[in-house]
């Protein structure tokens, strides 16, 4: 009797759990898993999206390395956008987080000010910087250059050959706040007693930062680095906006190349092959960087 009851209870419990889990799992399968599997399938085809796909094996992947391929420059641009702004973002975010953590005067105001760009959508940020960089009368940077340096000719900061460099300050400005808040949260969790003990032993601010702060927040720092790597590999919005939807070989990243191949050149097979490769790259780079940056967890 008791066994029967408990069996019925556990079955009811299973149904209860199932009824809650089934809808999100079904939706996830329908909108994420199936399209992902399909993307793998289409990456092995030649398909224009208008007629039937034709199986071509690994040809799309092989063409990434073909002479004159625009994929290699695209991946180089991703690496540039991952590394150059990344170094500035991490350094500045750590510096600002540490300063605010030291309870400098106006810390709260700085925290809000630095985080502010992060609440603006990436497209709005790009539009804002488009105005800053504009070579017309509205361009802030050219305007100041004319006043301060008496420069008579405007510089087209967003022209294709300059665009990647121009993206560095924009990306640093918009992303530093997020990483600062991330690191600051980790710093605030470090018990104050550690710092007090170290200070009693005569440790200065640099020693405190490298011997206590960094080791204690290493896990969060690693997460920050991985976010930056993924962000760099998936870089899209700013280039799309600043290139007015028409990136060139000099400015394409993997994501913009994928989009323009699929939606402008109707080469869906090639575009999805880029998507598949991007997926694998993000996966591999994330795993590898986690392994490389892994340290023994410190508990407190």
């Amino acid at each position: 009797m008791t066994t029967g009851l408990s069996k019925r209870n556990s079955r009811a419990q299973a149904w209860f759990v199932f009824s809650f889990l089934a809808p999100p799992v079904a939706l996830y399968a329908l909108f994420v898993l199936l399209p992902t599997i399909n993307a793998f399938r289409y990456s092995l085809t030649r398909w224009d999206g208008l007629s039937d796909p034709v199986y071509v094996g690994m040809r799309n992947f092989r063409s990434f390395l073909a002479p004159g391929s625009d994929f290699i420059p695209a991946i180089q641009h991703n690496l540039f956008l991952m590394l150059v702004p990344g170094v500035f973002i991490l350094s500045l975010a750590l510096m600002f987080a540490n300063m605010i953590h030291q309870r400098i005067k106006g810390a709260k105001v700085f925290r809000i000010a630095f985080f502010f760009p992060n609440i603006i959508s990436s497209v709005a940020v790009a539009l804002l910087w488009m105005l800053i960089y504009s070579p017309t009368k509205v361009g802030l940077l050219n305007h100041f250059a004319a006043i301060w340096f008496h420069r008579t000719q405007p510089v087209p900061y967003t022209e294709s050959s300059r665009l990647l460099t121009s993206l560095v300050p924009m990306t640093v400005w918009s992303a530093t706040g997020f990483y600062m808040v991330l690191f600051l949260a980790a710093m605030e969790n470090i018990p104050e007693t550690y710092y007090e003990a170290a200070r009693l032993d005569g440790a200065g601010p640099t020693t405190l930062f490298f011997r206590i702060t960094m080791p204690m927040m290493w896990e969060v720092f690693t997460t920050g680095v991985i976010f930056l790597i993924i962000g760099g590999l998936k870089y899209f919005d700013a280039i799309w906006v600043l290139e007015n939807g028409r990136p060139k070989t000099a400015t394409h990243t993997m994501s913009t190349l994928m989009y323009s191949r699929v939606f402008e050149q109707y080469n869906i097979g090639y575009g999805t092959a880029i998507a598949v490769l991007l997926f694998l790259l993000v996966l591999i780079v994330t795993v590898v960087s986690r392994r490389l940056l892994q340290r023994e967890a410190l508990e407190y």
């Binding site: 070579p135 017309t136 050219n142 000719q153 405007p154 087209p156 022209e159 007015n244």
Partner: peptide, 20 residues
């Protein structure tokens, strides 16, 4: 026009419409 490499079609056409 100098700087036109960084101008969209509307930006450059505005420069023309405004006589610059």
């Amino acid at each position: 026009q100098k700087g036109c490499a960084g101008m969209s079609h509307t930006e450059s056409q505005m420069e023309w419409a405004n006589g610059r």
